[in-house]
Design a protein around this nucleic acid. Structure first.
Lengths: 214, 214
DNA sequence: AAATTTACTGACTCATTAGTTAGTTTAACC
DNA sequence: GGTTAAACTAACTAATGAGTCAGTAAATTT
């Protein structure tokens, strides 16, 4: 393993055996593990092994399994939050804004389907204890706002915005979280392959838009 | 605890300390446990304690944790299958048939939201290893058939039936499985309470029907 | 090059867990 | 009322898992 440090004496930016990289790798491995097993089911040993370090190394970076879980959630949803914030929907009419938001959500799930699994497990196993409410507020708040706007403008039919928002999010996530139960519906095809994903994206947007439009 | 047996000598129907009842109670407790933790996370001790017996009693009835899990799944989906089969949708036009099916699915989830959780966990944790394919075939097969029929009849728009079927099931389940993450959207209200449930049922049906109709 | 700090490990502890077994209690049948 | 079989338990085993700690190796500083 050559090349550890590129800059030599830039403050504390570079660390001896590259602790920043190790930490990131641990978070990556932990994300995968938590996305399959949830908090309780996750094995610290498995996370360590997958990272190529010993279990004790995890405790060098994170005080406990629970805090590691919090860190994983934090990183996931900071990402998602960033994507949401750069959407700039205010200047768009309601229907265009909703299409844009749907595209973003579906692409987000395609890029990292683990987010959906983690949130599902979080709800089912931990009763939402670690659920990042500010993300929920932002996501559901944005959808509800768009729906209200659309109703006022007359482009959307009269609907209950909160229930509809929940159903929209459900539509954007189910395909990904239930993947493994659904795969036999498309024998021999990869559900996260380019063509099926593309098709699913379009079908989901069409269904929702037809569902809300007047 | 008085009254154990009502009929006295009806074959082997009545058992000494009522084994049939114990078995049912064990399955009930196991269903609750598995619906929260999944197969790997479930604690046999917890299932036993909740039933009011010792752990060893479970092994008197079931050879292993895995077989207990299989038995729980079996019972859940025999129920669901029974509900599906008595629907009699063949004689109905596509749109009425879909409404009927949606009502049934939503009511099924309302009555036992654990089904959705168990299926979600099954997909995420076990990669669908124990997923009852015959149930999936029946459910998705029925929806796809109705959608095709509706397109032929011209009452439904041109859509891809499989993706749409997945989205329909997603809409019918997400509210229930993600309950605990969503509760803060309705502060002070019970998501599975009569009024919210009723409202959600109607909103979901409206969204889907508007989404598929021509 | 010696001293110090940072990154990391091996070998532990103690709690928990699936599964077992030998034995006990309760009811059923004669 | 004594025998037998079914229902159930207490007390185990063996394995695994979260978390600890003393110590080592590599890099950085002096």
């Amino acid at each position: 393993m050559p090349v550890i440090n590129k800059q030599k004496t830039t403050k504390t930016a570079t660390l001896s055996r590259n602790s920043e990289a190790t930490k990131t790798q641990l978070l990556d491995a932990a994300e995968v593990e938590f996305a399959v097993t949830g908090l309780i089911g996750a094995r610290m040993e498995a996370i360590a092994a997958h990272t190529g370090v010993t279990k004790a190394t995890i405790y060098y970076y994170f005080p406990s399994k629970e805090e590691l879980y919090r860190a994983v959630l934090g990183r996931c949803f900071t990402e998602a939050l960033g994507m949401m914030e750069q959407l700039q929907l205010d200047c768009l009419p309601a229907d265009a804004a909703l299409v844009r938001l749907l595209e973003q959500m579906l692409d987000c799930m395609s890029q990292n389907p683990r987010i959906g699994s983690i949130l599902s497990l979080e709800a089912i196993q931990n009763k939402g204890k670690y659920y990042p409410k500010h993300l929920g507020d932002l996501l559901y708040g944005t959808i509800i706002e768009i729906l209200n706007q659309g109703m006022t403008a007359g482009v959307f039919r009269e609907l209950e915005p909160r229930h509809t928002a929940v159903n929209i999010v459900g539509t954007c996530t189910f395909y990904f979280t239930a993947q493994e139960n659904l795969k036999y519906l498309w024998p021999g095809k990869r559900l996260l392959g380019k063509d099926l994903l593309q098709r699913h994206r379009q079908e989901s947007i069409d269904l929702i838009m037809a569902g809300v439009r007047n």
